[in-house]
């Protein structure tokens, strides 16, 4: 058995960015099948154009339409591409100084082996058929034979914003203490751990007690009954929501624990939820259990009288 539990996690988000007048001009050019640079205060032409010259801090003085062809000034061979790159097979990334520009652009060059690219090689853009006004509207290819002209642009308005989807894959590991907790759940047990210094019982147990900075160590099996210490009635729908609002998310102080656990309270009208309510875990059928807190479907009222405030006032 491995020391810790782990699971794949994907964190994904679409960044929506406004682009402003300088990048907007560059990206509108891409949408139209043109490469646009800008003249900096020192006379150099940069493509892509920076909003401000990093040396003089001046805005560019004018935009310059470039032919699009250029020369490779450095290159590397991407032998093992990663997700999202312009090609999912080996390809070249290159610094390309476009004709009429003085500073290089980083982009992909479509060649089939490292032998087919070299410093000084001439390249030209190959435009995508559907262009959104983003840097991925084109790749570069060796400048030989007849170039296919860019197809007609799909829009006429200036590009004012871009959407960049970002997705990152991780293998997320639980700490050894959290792993013990999840393994316990797979057996229908709720395991906490006691801090050796302050004697508080944490559930889930922690790699370090936030009061004392030492790992919780002594294992404590807890009851699956407890007391609601505080709660929130969720009325707002959100992406990924699994239960139709309104519903109750609550802190539940399990009997024997010092730190409350967050879970759902169901089987009670939301207007009857209250601090001090006694609740018990409702477990899913055993055959559905895994190393997850979702083994507990939710908590439901036990029907006992409410807990006295004094029994949980130090755990709020």
């Amino acid at each position: 058995m491995s020391r810790t539990l782990s699971a794949p996690v994907t964190v994904a988000f679409d960044y929506t960015r406004s682009v402003g007048p300088v990048l907007g001009r560059f990206l509108t050019g891409l949408r139209d099948g043109r490469l646009v640079g800008a003249r900096l205060a020192d006379g150099r032409v940069a493509c892509p154009p920076p909003e401000f010259d990093p040396v003089s801090h001046q805005a560019p003085t004018e935009f310059v339409d470039l032919a699009g062809t250029g020369t490779v000034t450095s290159w590397t061979w991407v032998s093992e591409p990663v997700a999202g790159q312009p090609f999912d097979r080996p390809f070249a990334f290159a610094l390309i100084t476009l004709d009429g520009a003085d500073t290089p652009l980083l982009h992909a060059v479509d060649v089939s082996s490292a032998d087919e690219i070299s410093t000084g090689m001439r390249v030209r853009p190959r435009w995508g058929a559907e262009r959104a006004g983003v840097i991925t509207d084109l790749v570069f290819e060796p400048d030989s034979g007849t170039a296919a002209p860019a197809s007609a642009p799909t829009g006429t308005d200036d590009v004012t914003g871009i959407i960049t989807p970002i997705s990152l894959d991780y293998t997320y590991a639980a700490s050894p203490e959290e792993s013990a907790f999840y393994r316990g759940l797979a057996e229908g047990r709720i395991l906490g751990q006691r801090c050796p210094k302050c004697q508080k019982v944490y559930v889930p147990p922690r790699p370090a007690c936030p009061t004392d900075g030492v790992p919780t160590s002594e294992e404590v099996e807890l009851s699956d009954t407890g007391t609601v210490t505080t709660f929130c009635i969720v009325n707002v729908p959100f992406l990924g929501q699994r239960i139709a609002p309104p519903y109750v998310s609550a802190y539940i102080l399990l009997d024997g624990a010092d730190i409350a656990l967050q879970h759902l309270i169901l089987d009670i009208p939301v207007e009857e939820i209250r601090m001090g309510l006694r609740v018990k875990a409702v477990w899913k059928p055993r055959e559905e259990w895994g190393t997850t807190i979702e083994n507990i479907s939710h908590f439901a009222p036990t029907g006992e009288p409410d807990a006295d405030y004094d029994t949980y006032k130090h755990h709020l």
Partner: peptide
């Protein structure tokens, strides 16, 4: 984030471009 990240240039590739220069 406008002209580079959408191409996902990885750190090793960027260092390689620098090394060749």
């Amino acid at each position: 984030p406008y002209t580079l990240t959408p191409l996902w240039p990885d750190t090793v590739s960027i260092a390689a471009l620098q090394a060749r220069l």
